[in-house]
Design a protein around this nucleic acid. Sequence first.
DNA 1: CCTCCACAGGAAGCGCAGGAGT
DNA 2: ACTCCTGCGCTTCCTGTGGAGG
Length: 393
Amino acid sequence: MQEKTLFRNKDVLSPHFVPEALLHRDAEVRTVMRCIAPAFQDQKAKNLFIYGRPGTGKTACVKGVLAKMDERGDARVRSAYMNCRVYDSRYKVLQKCVGEFKPGFARTGYSFAVLYEEFLDWIEGDSPETAKRLVVALDEIDMIRDLDPLVYTLTRINDDLVRGSVSLVGISNSVNFKNRLDSRSRSSICEEELVFASYNANQLRDILSARIKEGFQEGAVTAGAVNLAAAVAASENGDARYALSLLLRAGELAQKRGKTEVTDALVEESRRLADEDTAFDVIGVLPQHQQYLLYALACLAQDGHYKRLVTSDDGERLYFSGEVYERYCRVVKQSGKQPRTARWYREYLGELESAGLVSTVTSGKGVRGHTTLIRLGYDADKVRKVIEKTLLA
DNA sequence: CCTCCACAGGAAGCGCAGGAGT
DNA sequence: ACTCCTGCGCTTCCTGTGGAGG
């Protein structure tokens, strides 16, 4: 069988890929370079703090600049990049730095003081010609548990050094993260600040087009698909990673179905699938009784054992709050537990709605009394299966 | 028009867990 | 180690609401 692929190079579409040229980030790249430039004049690079929403190119920008910096092959100017989800404490960060340049120290077990001394030694080198200008990039810096001590250590180290220097580039998703720092660490880490604004739809389209050129076969993605992915991502915080993941997913769908083109319909479908994925992740961590409630609703929707029913304008079935509660009680009792009261059931329902798993409307004309009509947000069968998996585990 | 229905959602209080104070 | 306090999840009780039905 002839394996016909829509993709030219899937890696280009991966969220971890760092492109050669970063579109619409020229100014940001220049700022980062300006902060690092002093290192090449044998001076301390500036500390820099970067923030912006996810998928705005912070990591790619810093990684790109660091790579260019390494390309120049100046043995005295060095960089270390790490993600603080992994290296989440002062000790781990220091150990990673030392281990990077002194492979013998890659193992754990050394005391902090020993590591610190090693670090100092390595940076100072034996002579002014071998002293290093190190730039440490800490991605997702807000994940570090003991940040104040870390910032203190890494800035203070410059006082202990006879020659060479250590500079910091901190990257964070949250703007108000720096308010959690004490004022001294804040002023040292925020020597320079840089904000990455979210991409708009046009910028996203440019970025997507560039990646598509490398990632997909020519003509494999329609213009409509690109526009839709860009528009959807722009309305959801301007996240380029999300836009890319939509296209990648749509491409995989097209491939699986033997289609020759990625169309906007497929992008729309993968948006729904992505939506569903996150929704089902949410279901898994819901409190038990909210899961029971959702399960009862899904059962009701599936077996149709309801007495009353209303259909919404767009043809969706709406179930009566009272009946859903009855069903919920039955479900809970069947698994040998005590159902919550109706009052609490209403609270649960409210939480499910704010989680986007169900939607509700208050009954208007045509219904006796005053009640809530509930609609299940996702496919009943899938919802049931997900809950069966988590509830019975 | 009044009454009933089928709830909505506020208020008060209860039992418990976990943290602070001593 | 002890008590005290507080927050949380929950129940009980109650008043409010908007349309249907007589």
